[in-house]
Write a protein that binds this DNA or RNA. Sequence first.
DNA 1: CCTTTTTGTTATCAAAAGATAAGTAAATGG
DNA 2: CCATTTACTTATCTTTTGATAACAAAAAGG
Lengths: 142, 142
Amino acid sequence: MDHGTLFQKFVAFTADLHEVSHELTRGVKNEDVTPVQYKILEYMMVSQPVTPSEIADCVDLSLPNTSRELRKLTEKRLCEKATDDVDRRRQLFRLSTDGQAMMGRVFAQAQQGFEQRIAGLTEDELKELEEALELLQKKVFR
Amino acid sequence: MDHGTLFQKFVAFTADLHEVSHELTRGVKNEDVTPVQYKILEYMMVSQPVTPSEIADCVDLSLPNTSRELRKLTEKRLCEKATDDVDRRRQLFRLSTDGQAMMGRVFAQAQQGFEQRIAGLTEDELKELEEALELLQKKVFR
DNA sequence: CCTTTTTGTTATCAAAAGATAAGTAAATGG
DNA sequence: CCATTTACTTATCTTTTGATAACAAAAAGG
């Protein structure tokens, strides 16, 4: 297996996946958040609570800009802030009830789109799919 | 295989891939183009020549904004414009020599990062990887 | 021909995102 | 204690991106 060829397939694959995931999260446009704000909410969805520093790292944003966007999200009542009891410099952000609900909607719509894409597959094919995902994750990521 | 579980794995996978591809194209920051402009150049890389309409469609940009970015890219000598002989309304854009060179650099760096990630794999594992990519592409995309 | 449609451009304005300087409060570590 | 570091915030400015209106030129289709 030539590495160059494999790389090209990987590039094509990445482009396709990007397009599909863009299509699946199309529902975000209906909600009143900017792309950057959505990324922050998505990150909160998987790891809660989070500090501004952690968000800044993971979403690739400067701390001042992270702070600004968190303020906006808080004003929109999509997340909540609390001071860490142990280290009172640290601010802990988590999704509010509204925020949870909104992300729930977005994910539900994405899942619906995903379901449609895999609708025609047999049980065996689904199993293969799962294994392919895990293989890629194990061998290429991390 | 539960569809919900598979969807969650797909989401996690997408997040990981996005992070990896972001890391691989880190080299773009050294070049003097904005993210949107990079997307246009990347698109030109795979299909040349392209018209503003085609770019607008694929990169998800309005025609006026596409036109503006193409002008900037042309001013930076990264692409070139020519009028279609058959239909003279159509403008054909392609990468200039400089543009080709730049995208070559970026892709080379990305490929280098990719090579490092798959460095330790055996011939069999590489084959498996290729098959996993193709399976996902065939079953989920398109 | 002449109207309509297609393709692209220019100009402008508003919103989003990026960068940086300056400051506050709490913890850390002599 | 007290200087230093860490975590975050506020303020401000620039650049990038998005949206829209108005226009020009070529093609299409009677």
